[in-house]
Design a protein around this nucleic acid. Structure first.
Length: 518
RNA sequence: GCGCCGCUAGCUCAACUGGCAGAGCAGCGGACUCUUAAUCCGCGGGUUGUAGGUUCAAGUCCUACGCGGCGUACCA
């Protein structure tokens, strides 16, 4: 039929999706029975001159408003108040001349609709039974009552379909397979209350971060996602091509170098919450695209930034859970209150390996210590890399409480200023929560001459085969040469924060994580 | 990347040593004016991830591939 052909032609023309959604226009017999039945119902409605997808339905109240307004009604009460509501049918009980349906709105609030023969009439009651399926959106007009069992209900005088659902909902009382939850998040959100809660918890948390920073006089900026050089972190980038400029460009791995340009220009308290892209492994704690918060503050040092970071995360925990002591969704309890623990890289590693390790310890000694615990050194490693590996291996898992680990090796931190007292060390901390790195903070390197030396050393690593090493960003160095005020800076993974707050896998905290096509 | 496990109805899962592919929910038809995962009677629904192979016979065994999970490696 013509309509079907138009749809199919349009799809082919667009070609914008590789979704294998089958086009069954002329092959209804191939469809699963339940989808075929629902398509037939849709067609039947159209043939009868009824609209399965109307532009508008009358709504006088949200379900939540009615829940609140009639919270204290006694059993079996008729209020005389007439309303019109809409929601998705999530549960049906059809008896002979009195039908019940539970409607749910997007905020999770639910109410019962009742359809009786004497109110809606024989024809509309029969229509309801034959046309309305689990998952349909409907609008119901009628009186607010409580049933004889006390359930708050709208006793319908009339009703309309608001949107016909052509696919059956999964069974409500069995957990959906994890793959389906990720691939079809919309279904997950419909059937699983916790999925809805996670989505909203993420929104609250990110809003809290913005509010905390804004309250401290920070301004939010948006810096390039497409960059001609990849810098600000050591990671493999995604590469794509600009047809207009005929150059390869990189999806950013970090916004750092642009935010520092902002500070040079006088945006002295600046932050960005946005996506970074890293062309590396994807597992339960890593996603190729992930949300990053970075913030920079002129005339602050790394100690100031640690305090701000703790306060930011504490506020976020309150936004997420209402308290600094909270139970995560995996059932574990956490306490983010008070001051947080501190540790120091070289003393911690020294204690763990049983001998003093300093930035001056010969690399041969470090290599032996690594090999003794099955850490396999690579030829691109600088001495500080060994120390960081030893820290990861021996120390980090001990940090069950949130812990700031201070004073990292200079040779692995090309964008951090040297420690004001300790040679070979930079003013950098990593924040660990539950043994996982949650964020990093610096006293920023602002001397353009030293910064150039560090980046040149990085590019030498890159020439030597280190695909993660940074490139020399001449424009960034030029900006520094105009003078950047002494500053502190922090980078913090937003997804990681959500994982720490919920105890969930990264794929649960991201609404639509990247998955291979089906 | 490597190793192990998995993929069966719309959903969640069964199916012994290779021997007629099943259940619950959902669906369809019928009954029921107070149900709450409603109940009762009846009925449909399957290219067992894909492609090969072994066998009288394959959901089950073998090979390859796809997708997923877990572990491991990698991940400033």
């Amino acid at each position: 039929m013509p309509v079907a052909r138009i749809h199919r032609g349009t799809d082919n023309l667009c070609g914008m999706t590789n979704e294998p959604i089958p086009r069954h226009d002329e092959h209804d017999e191939d469809l699963p029975e339940q989808i075929r039945v629902r398509r037939d119902k849709r067609q039947r409605l159209l043939d009868a001159g009824q609209e399965p997808y109307p532009v508008r339905v009358p709504i006088t109240h949200t379900i939540d408003q009615i829940r609140v307004a009639y919270a204290d009604l006694e059993i079996d009460v008729a209020t005389g108040d007439s309303v019109s509501i809409a929601g998705r049918v999530i549960f049906q009980r059809n008896t002979g001349k009195l039908c019940f349906a539970t409607l749910r709105a997007g905020d999770g609030s639910e109410i019962q609709a009742m359809l009786s023969l004497d109110k809606v009439g024989e024809e509309r009651l029969a229509d309801w039974k034959s046309d309305v399926d689990l998952g349909d959106h409907v609008a119901v007009q009628g009186e607010v009552i409580t049933s004889r069992r006390g359930e708050l209900s709208v006793l319908a005088d009339s009703w309309q379909l608001a949107a016909k659902s052509l696919r059956p909902l999964p069974v409500a009382h069995k957990p959906l397979a994890e793959e389906t939850r990720v691939r079809q998040r919309y279904v997950d959100l419909i059937v699983r209350p916790q999925a809805r809660e996670i989505a909203r918890l993420r929104i609250r948390t990110v809003a809290s971060l913005r509010e905390s920073l804004t309250a401290r006089g920070y301004v939010e900026v948006e810096t390039p996602m497409l960059q001609t050089l990849h810098g600000g972190a050591t990671a493999r980038p995604f590469v794509t091509h600009s047809n207009a400029f005929d150059i390869d460009v990189f999806l950013r791995i970090a916004p750092e170098l642009f935010l520092k340009r902002c500070v040079v220009g006088g945006l002295e308290r600046v932050f960005e919450i946005n996506r970074n892209f890293r062309n590396e492994g994807a597992d339960s704690t890593h996603s190729p695209e992930f949300a990053m918060l970075e913030y920079y503050e002129a005339y602050a040092d790394y100690r100031d930034m640690a305090r701000t970071t703790r306060e930011l995360i504490q506020s976020a925990a309150i936004a997420a859970h209402g308290s600094l002591q909270f139970t995560r969704m995996d059932g574990q309890e956490r306490d983010f209150s008070g001051d947080w623990d501190e540790a120091y890289v070289y003393p911690s590693v020294s204690a763990a390996v049983g001998r003093e390790i300093t930035p001056q310890t010969p690399v041969d000694v470090l290599r032996e210590l690594c090999e003794a615990v099955d850490i396999k050194p690579e030829k691109t490693w600088v001495p500080g890399k060994y120390v960081e590996e030893l820290l990861e291996h021996h120390v980090v898992a001990q940090f069950t409480r949130p812990t700031f680990v201070y004073d990292y090796p200079e040779d692995t931190s090309p964008l951090v200023r040297a420690h004001r007292e300790l040679p070979g060390v930079v003013e950098k901390w990593d924040l660990y929560i539950d043994g996982a790195e949650q964020g990093t903070g610096y006293s920023e390197l602002i001397d353009p001459v030293i910064q150039r030396e560090r980046l040149v050393a990085q590019s030498a690593l890159k020439a030597g085969g280190d695909v993660e090493a940074m490139q020399v960003d001449e424009d960034f160095l030029r900006a520094l040469e105009y003078g950047m005020p002494p500053s502190g800076g922090v980078g913090m993974g937003v997804d990681r924060l959500l994982m720490n707050l919920t105890g969930l896998n990264i794929r649960e905290t991201i609404l639509f994580p990247l998955v291979k096509p089906e």
